[in-house]
Amino acid sequence: MKRTILTGLTTWFLVAAGANAGELTFEKTLIEVTAKPDQEQIEADFVFTSSGDSPATIKRYDAPCSCLEAQISDGGRLVWAAGEKGTVRGLFKVGNFRGTVDKQISILMDDGTRHDLTVRMTMPELVKIEPKTLKWEEGGAAETKVFEITINSPDPLKILDVTATNGEKFPYSLKTIEEGKSYRLEVTPTDTETRGFGLLRVATDSKYKKHQNYQAYVVVTKPSMVPATAAKP
């Protein structure tokens, strides 16, 4: 009987201790930031509070992508007393990212708890190319397909040139719909008898270096598999 009572008390104390263990509570675990066209780095601050009755201890923290650096306030302090506030700062190197991309910082606590903090960075695409890839099936029709190019810059932005890595197999023609605003890039493969791949580089007169070159892809792929129709009984 005594053993049962002691076991029950021990369990209660462990649960109570766990409930009051030091922990970090974050105001946000997702921060969305829109970068300016010429911005090289953005910052995202994740504010936290140390909760519980005992200090919260960070065992380690990591940002797997080389484009994202994690910094903890107060010189990288890892132990935070109850009630203290701090910040995990994400430094995102924009590089050649365009569109929207998510990158994470992982915080592992001493008790095994893990916090995943997400930086969602959006770099506006001043030149939008749709689709990103034109595809033909091997052995199919070598028909003309089109990239629609739309300029999303607040100021007119012209296409200066288009070059290709495999222009012999994928001849192309650029047509201006509205100068500085809209273009069509037509591609007609010479044949689809063999598979092939090509890269088209679109050069612009943007004043921002990271927006002076865009890419699109062309490919002749293996025919898609079509399920055979079940034979009728």
Rank of each mutant, 00 (worst) to 15 (best):
E168R: 10
T113S: 11
G180M: 01
G22T: 00
L199F: 06
N166D: 14
V218F: 05
K85R: 15
M225Y: 14
V94C: 08
G83Q: 09
T204L: 04
T25V: 11
K28P: 08
E40Q: 14
D205M: 04
D155V: 13
V162H: 08
Y208V: 12
Q104G: 08
Q212K: 11
F97C: 05
G140A: 14
I159H: 09
S106F: 11
E179D: 14
L160A: 11
V15N: 02
Y61L: 05
A21M: 13
S51R: 06
T87A: 13
L78V: 07
T188M: 08
K145V: 06
I72P: 04
P55V: 06
T11E: 11
V187E: 02
Y208K: 02
T163C: 08
T144C: 12
F147D: 00
I31F: 08
R3T: 12
L30N: 11
N213A: 13
W136P: 00
G99N: 02
A142P: 09
Y214L: 01
E125Y: 05
W80Y: 02
T144Y: 04
K28N: 15
R195W: 00
S54V: 09
M1H: 13
T34D: 10
R3Q: 15
A203N: 04
E143T: 14
D110N: 09
T100C: 02
E32V: 04
N20F: 12
S54R: 10
L174K: 03
T113G: 07
D62Y: 07
E125M: 10
M121C: 12
L157S: 03
Y172M: 05
S66P: 08
A82G: 08
L91R: 00
K59R: 08
V119H: 02
V94Y: 02
A63T: 03
H115L: 04
M109K: 03
E178Q: 13
